[in-house]
Amino acid sequence: MSVQPPRPFYVPVGNEEQVFKAAYRQGLSIVLKGPTGCGKTRFVEAMAHDLGRPLITVSCHDDLTTADLVGRFLLRGGETEWVDGPLTRAVREGAICYLDEVVEARQDTTVVLHPLADHRRQLPIERLGITLDAAPGFCLVVSYNPGYQSVLKDLKDSTRQRMVAIEFGFPTPDVEEKIVATEAGIGPDRAAELVRLGQAIRRLETGGLREVASTRVLIAAGRLIAEGLSPRDAARAAIAGPLTDDSTVTRGLIEMIDAYLSGSDD
C-alpha cells in the first residue's frame, strides 16, 4: 500500500487556494502572475497534492519548440517511434501541466495552448494527424513575472483571456517569517531578521538589482545559517551575490546586511 507523500509546505496569503480549486473543478486554465521566488511553483505543487493529480512541470525558455511540448518522432532500434512531450502526457493522463515562465517560450510555441486553454480542451497533434481530448483531471497552469519581462515578452491577449488569473506578491512579514523559519530550519528571531532585510532591499530604488530579494533567497540564506555559516556570510552568498553584479550595489547590500543581521548565531 503506497503512502501519501506529505503536502508541500505552502502558507496561503489570500483566497488563491479557493480560486485555483474552483477553476480546476470548472475545467478552466489558470495563469499565475507575480515576482520570481514568491512561491508560485510551491503553490502549484500544493494544489496538485490537494487535488490528487500528478504534476508535470516545464521550465520555459526561448529555445522551447512545439515539438518539445507536444512530442516528436525518434529513431529507436532502427525504427521510428513517436514519443509524447510533457504537454501531451499531461493531456492523456489527466495531469496538471505547469508551464513556468511561459512568456520565455516562443509565441509560435505557445499558440498550441489555445485550444487546450478554452472550452475545447483539445490538443491537435499535426504530426500524427489527430486531436486529443483532455482526459478528466487535466489542468493547464502557466506563470510569468509581469514586472520583469519586457513588453516584447508579455503574454498575448488571445492567450490570457482564455485563463483565470491569480495575482501573487510577497507574503506579509508574519507569514514570510513563518515560511523562512520552517523551510530553512532556523529560529523565529533569525527568520525575522532575514525578512526585515528582505523588505528593506525591496524598498530600494536602484537599477543595479537583477531582481528584488525574494522569499526564495531568504530561505537559501537561512539554510546556510542552519549549516553553521554566520548570518552575514550566509546573506552575502545567498542574497547579495545572486541579486547583482554591480560592485557599487553590492557594497550597498553588504552594508545593509551588516546593519540588519546580528553577528551571533542562534
Rank of each mutant, 00 (worst) to 15 (best):
residue 28 L to F: 09
residue 35 P to M: 04
residue 31 V to R: 01
residue 25 R to V: 12
residue 33 K to R: 13
residue 17 E to W: 00
residue 32 L to S: 09
residue 46 A to P: 06
residue 39 G to R: 09
residue 41 T to P: 11
residue 19 V to Q: 00
residue 16 E to F: 12
residue 20 F to P: 06
residue 41 T to I: 13
residue 27 G to N: 05
residue 17 E to T: 15
residue 18 Q to S: 13
residue 47 M to T: 06
residue 21 K to G: 01
residue 29 S to T: 09
residue 42 R to C: 15
residue 47 M to A: 09
residue 43 F to Y: 11
residue 43 F to H: 06
residue 45 E to L: 14
residue 35 P to Q: 04
residue 42 R to S: 15
residue 28 L to K: 00
residue 23 A to T: 05
residue 38 C to T: 14
residue 18 Q to T: 12
residue 28 L to P: 02
residue 41 T to G: 12
residue 20 F to R: 02
residue 53 R to L: 09
residue 22 A to Q: 06
residue 26 Q to M: 14
residue 20 F to Q: 05
residue 46 A to G: 11
residue 23 A to S: 07
residue 22 A to S: 09
residue 40 K to I: 11
residue 50 D to L: 08
residue 46 A to R: 04
residue 18 Q to C: 07
residue 39 G to L: 12
residue 44 V to A: 12
residue 28 L to S: 05
residue 36 T to S: 14
residue 40 K to W: 13
residue 49 H to Y: 04
residue 54 P to S: 06
residue 36 T to A: 15
residue 51 L to V: 02
residue 31 V to A: 13
residue 31 V to M: 04
residue 17 E to Y: 00
residue 46 A to F: 07
residue 19 V to L: 10
residue 23 A to K: 00
residue 23 A to V: 08
residue 50 D to R: 02
residue 23 A to R: 00
residue 43 F to N: 03
residue 51 L to G: 01
residue 17 E to A: 14
residue 36 T to C: 11
residue 20 F to T: 07
residue 42 R to G: 15
residue 42 R to D: 11
residue 43 F to T: 11
residue 26 Q to V: 12
residue 20 F to D: 05
residue 14 G to Y: 01
residue 16 E to R: 10
residue 49 H to Q: 02
residue 45 E to Q: 15
residue 30 I to S: 04
residue 38 C to F: 05
residue 34 G to R: 02
residue 27 G to W: 03
residue 31 V to P: 06
residue 48 A to H: 01
residue 34 G to F: 11
residue 30 I to L: 11
residue 48 A to L: 06
residue 30 I to N: 03
residue 37 G to W: 07
residue 41 T to V: 14
residue 33 K to F: 07
residue 32 L to I: 13
residue 33 K to T: 12
residue 29 S to C: 12
residue 53 R to I: 08
residue 22 A to Y: 00
residue 17 E to P: 12
residue 30 I to E: 01
residue 27 G to A: 07
residue 43 F to E: 02
residue 38 C to W: 01
residue 51 L to R: 00
residue 31 V to S: 11
residue 27 G to C: 08
residue 14 G to A: 15
residue 23 A to L: 06
residue 30 I to A: 06
residue 49 H to R: 02
residue 20 F to E: 05
residue 30 I to G: 04
residue 46 A to S: 14
residue 35 P to C: 06
residue 19 V to G: 04
residue 13 V to K: 00
residue 37 G to A: 12
residue 53 R to T: 06
residue 54 P to G: 05
residue 13 V to A: 14
residue 16 E to D: 10
residue 19 V to P: 02
residue 36 T to M: 10
residue 15 N to F: 10
residue 33 K to G: 07
residue 20 F to V: 08
residue 44 V to Q: 07
residue 47 M to H: 03
residue 40 K to S: 11
residue 31 V to F: 03
residue 42 R to A: 15
residue 34 G to S: 10
residue 19 V to T: 09
residue 44 V to S: 10
residue 34 G to Y: 09
residue 27 G to V: 08
residue 51 L to H: 00
residue 37 G to R: 09
residue 26 Q to I: 10
residue 34 G to W: 08
residue 39 G to D: 08
residue 50 D to H: 01
residue 14 G to F: 03
residue 38 C to V: 15
residue 43 F to P: 10
residue 24 Y to W: 10
residue 29 S to R: 00
residue 15 N to L: 12
residue 30 I to F: 05
